[in-house]
Every structure is written in structure tokens, then in C-alpha cells.
């Protein structure tokens, strides 16, 4: 699903964001990436989303080599991903349902099945009573769940969540991680970045990697940490 070999990423200003990353993520994996701010977590996610290309090394995502991809290939890869952004990136002036539908309209779903899937996704994150609420009227937690529904609704092969526990207390953060883990399947891998290492100790059967100054350290499975 994702295979990185000796990947380096250097920004135009000379910052070495990622150094010699070697990583293999298979379908069904739940991967936690932890590390302090500026350690390279977001840069790694940018590589996975095709926003950046490696300056050195090879990176294969969902069967495509990112360095050799055309913009059309990257667009196609992105349709197989479910990104959950740190700031959610919901579209204002639209309802929760419209926001969830927004990621599906250009895919090969019929209008009817699209709406059914969107309602199901919102129900799964506990927002079936807020389907027609404008996103600007939702609370922070509700907005985050709309973002999750939008990411998972199209049954992606890869779910990428950037700091989903950022503004949550421990209890809600654990609930959030449980909710995200519940979308794991044999076909779907989940990658979650967080700086709260202590939160993931309760999650078994998850891989854990730590980023530090652009270097990746495999910590193994959570049960072995």
C-alpha cells in the first residue's frame, strides 16, 4: 500500500524535513506517528498525499510511484484516500451532509447511493441529527466528526488523520482514536499523527513510529512499546 525506500525531503529553503525514511504500510495496518512539533509528521503526511514529492529515494503509494506521477495520477490516488485535516477544512455555507457529499460527487456513485452512504457515514460518527445543520453552527467536536465522515464515506484504502486529538481532553481523545480505529478493515490502512504518545498505549495491534528531527524510528507494535 505504502512503501518508502531511503526517502529524503528537502524544502526549497534548504530545510531537511525527512531523512532516509524506510517504511512499509500494508492494508489493515493502523499506524500511529508521534513526535514533537516540527519533527516531520506533517511532512510525511504531505508525501503520502502527493502534495510533496521525495527529493531522494522512492515512494510508492497505492501502486503508484509518487516521483513519476502525473498530476492526474496524483488526483486519482487522492480519490482513494480519506484525509482528515487538523483544521477539518469544512466548506462554510454548506450543511454537514453537503460537506460529506463534496468528496463523492466526482466519483462513480449514483446520486441515490451517494446520499445513502453520506447519511450512513454521518450516523456512524453520531451526527444523524445534524445532517442538515450548517457547518458553521456545529461545535468543534461535531465539525471534527463531519470531517471524519467525509473522509470515510467513500470507503478509502488509506485514511490519513493529522493530529485528530489536538484540542481534546484525554477522555475525548481516546474516544476519537477509538472512532478512527473502528474504520480499520482488511482493505483499509489508517495513519494517525499525534504528539500525545501516552494516548496510544491503550490501543493494541497498532504500529507506532516516532519522528524526531526528520528521522523515523520504528517502535514496533503498541503492545511491544
Amino acid at each position: 500500500m505504502i512503501e518508502a525506500k531511503n526517502v529524503f525531503l528537502r524544502y526549497p529553503d534548504g530545510t531537511e524535513a525527512l531523512k532516509n525514511i524506510n517504511l512499509r504500510i500494508s492494508p489493515g495496518n493502523i499506524l500511529y506517528i508521534t513526535g514533537a512539533s516540527g519533527s516531520g509528521k506533517t511532512s510525511l503526511l504531505k508525501l503520502f498525499m502527493g502534495i510533496e514529492a521525495p527529493t531522494k529515494g522512492t515512494l510508492n503509494i497505492l501502486g503508484e510511484s509518487i516521483s513519476q506521477c502525473s498530476s492526474k495520477d496524483i488526483q486519482k490516488i487522492r480519490t482513494m484516500m480519506g484525509p482528515i485535516f487538523q483544521d477539518f477544512r469544512l466548506i462554510k455555507g454548506r450543511t454537514a451532509l453537503e460537506n460529506v457529499l463534496m468528496g463523492m460527487r466526482f466519483l462513480r456513485f449514483s446520486t441515490r447511493s451517494m446520499e445513502e452512504m453520506a447519511h450512513d457515514a454521518l450516523a456512524r460518527v453520531g451526527l444523524n441529527h445534524k445532517v442538515n445543520s450548517m457547518v458553521e453552527n456545529l461545535s468543534w467536536g461535531e465539525s471534527q466528526r463531519v470531517a471524519i465522515a467525509r473522509a470515510v464515506v467513500r470507503k478509502p484504502s488509506l485514511i490519513l488523520a493529522d493530529e485528530p486529538t489536538g484540542n481534546l481532553d484525554k477522555e475525548n481523545a481516546v474516544k476519537m482514536l477509538e472512532l478512527l480505529s473502528s474504520f480499520s478493515s482488511d482493505e483499509t490502512a489508517i495513519i494517525i499523527t499525534t504528539h500525545a504518545t501516552h494516548l496510544i498505549e491503550d490501543f493494541l495491534d497498532c504500529r507506532h513510529i516516532v519522528m524526531e528531527a526528520g528521522n523515523l524510528m520504528e517502535k514496533g507494535w503498541v503492545e511491544g512499546v
Partner: peptide, 16 residues
């Protein structure tokens, strides 16, 4: 621009 960038990140084609 925010909406457009989000749609791009979700994989929407430029024509859409």
C-alpha cells in the same frame, strides 16, 4: 480558494 484547495486534496478533477 479554501474550498478549491480542499477539493483538490480530496482528489476532485480540475474540470469538476
Amino acid at each position: 480558494k479554501e474550498e478549491i484547495n480542499t477539493l483538490r486534496l480530496l482528489g476532485a478533477p480540475e474540470g469538476f
